[in-house]
Amino acid sequence: MREKKVQSGYNFAFLDEQSKKEIRRRMLKAVAIPGYQVPFASRELPIARGWGTGGLQLTMSLIGPEDILKVIDQGSDDVVNAVNIRKLLVLTTGVRTTEDTREATLIQTRHRIPEEPLEDWQILVFQVPYPEPLRRVEPSEVKTREMHAEADYSRLWVYLYEDIVRWGEITIGAQYPVMVNGRYVMDPSPIPRWDVPRLNMAETLYLFGAGREKRIYAVPPHTRVEPLQFTDYPFRVEDFRCKQCALCGSVDTYLDEIIDDTTGARRYICSDTAYCAKRRRLKEEAGENA
């Protein structure tokens, strides 16, 4: 039998087995009711609330010794918070990690879906700050839960309509509300609108964990996920026309805007840094071969 204590005194994947069991039961319910927020008890972790504890608890309850793990924040594997979360998971599980999206069996992310297509043997875990899409129109949990129960989303539609009247556009940037399976309006976590279409009829299971707000929800594969929109004001992703990545030359990826220290010039680079690096490597190899 495998050694259970991977790192001095801590259980495999940190959480005790009872906690994992509870989270696992909730995950199964979340999958069975797509887009519905399942309450859970939520444990404290050695990482602060609001820093990915929801996603982490899901990952800890999912992960096994055979998994290959990727952790990203803002699309990047090397941002401090991603490094920290990966460190804790490796310390307590000893699993292999990767930066290659196409190799990872389990990916934990904050604010992005990796650019490369995900497949049915992979699971993407999102860190969620605000699980409740109706919070922007109603502060009370009791009331928003009633609105979900009755599928009464009229106040959110009014909010979107008023946005258009005032600004001529829906001004929601990231964290764009979506309708799941025609029943529940869901917060897709603060991913950019760019990533929203990738939730629809996907191959991969998407799991969402909000540690501080203590909610778990899911989008199973092959499930309808539609952004809320009006026919005359359709949903639009971020506009990167005429822009390309200054590093890999990509014109079809989500870009970060960089302001150069010295010149003050504006440049763009891929937000998915691992994919960007891979593209550059492939380009170089193609160049050498040619």
Binding site: I170, T171, G173, P190, I191, P192, W194, E238, E257, S271
Partner: peptide, 14 residues
Amino acid sequence: LPHYVTFQSVLDRL
């Protein structure tokens, strides 16, 4: 924590 991605998205809306 960094919020580059969401900020970029809001920037696009603004």
